[in-house]
Write a protein that binds this DNA or RNA. Sequence first.
DNA 1: AGAAATTTGTCCGTATGTATC
DNA 2: AGATACATACGGACAAATTTC
Lengths: 143, 143
Amino acid sequence: MPTPHYGQPRYRVIADELRTRIETGAIPPGALLPPESALMAEYRASRGTIRQAIGVLREARLVATEHGRGTYAALRSSENESGLLAGVGTVELIRVREVAADEDLAEAFEVEAGTALVERQSVQRVGSAVRLVKRTYRLRGDD
Amino acid sequence: MPTPHYGQPRYRVIADELRTRIETGAIPPGALLPPESALMAEYRASRGTIRQAIGVLREARLVATEHGRGTYAALRSSENESGLLAGVGTVELIRVREVAADEDLAEAFEVEAGTALVERQSVQRVGSAVRLVKRTYRLRGDD
DNA sequence: AGAAATTTGTCCGTATGTATC
DNA sequence: AGATACATACGGACAAATTTC
């Protein structure tokens, strides 16, 4: 199979399909997703494509992956596992994730509430103390 | 070379090296990074690895890529501090209000959830369309 | 305790399509 | 038209963490 990207790329289609499985409970919270090898067979896609699809879900914090174990559907309470405290710089990007637009954001972007937005959170430190937290929101279409 | 290393994936090492070049001014703001082919030769890495490294910097908004052009070092002074895209469109402060800290914010500021924070929301427009919404959070009385 | 199997992580090389200069 | 760069997709390989036998 060469590379026809008509419309949606395959990894996005696969990501959406897996997202639906998680959101409908076909894959319950905390459960393991099928291993990459199984998804390769099911979707007849290469491993790279499967991993790219899972990467989309991971960025959206819908799944979490552990080396040697597998990829789990996220638990609702495991939201604050960012734990990126390495930088000494003044501004540090903490995370990027997809969130559903609340009413305010939906009104600003003129979309329906619940539309997926990309949220970036960063913190500004003075010494070790957090001075400010910044969250920016963009449409998924990007810049 | 099969796959040496570990301790740090190659693409992260390359990303860190490029980040240093940008932050030290070896690659000045707005300047083009070397093309992928040059980085491939310099680091003896495959294209995918180079692109992955650049992807890390792009996500952190340290660089920006343009189709058919190349990858530029970001204009740190105006772009990184504000989180906005330099010089594009108009910025308008929408509102200031007090909100209760959610779990993420409480953890960042090292206070209890529910502590009052000052939230400022502003939007960046290009024409009439909203490009980006920014929300900043500070402790009350901290400016 | 140890070896094998499973699963994810990373890297390589290649190929095709698309967009811009 | 040609060069450059990006997006997507494939296949193969070895490394590392975990589980299973």
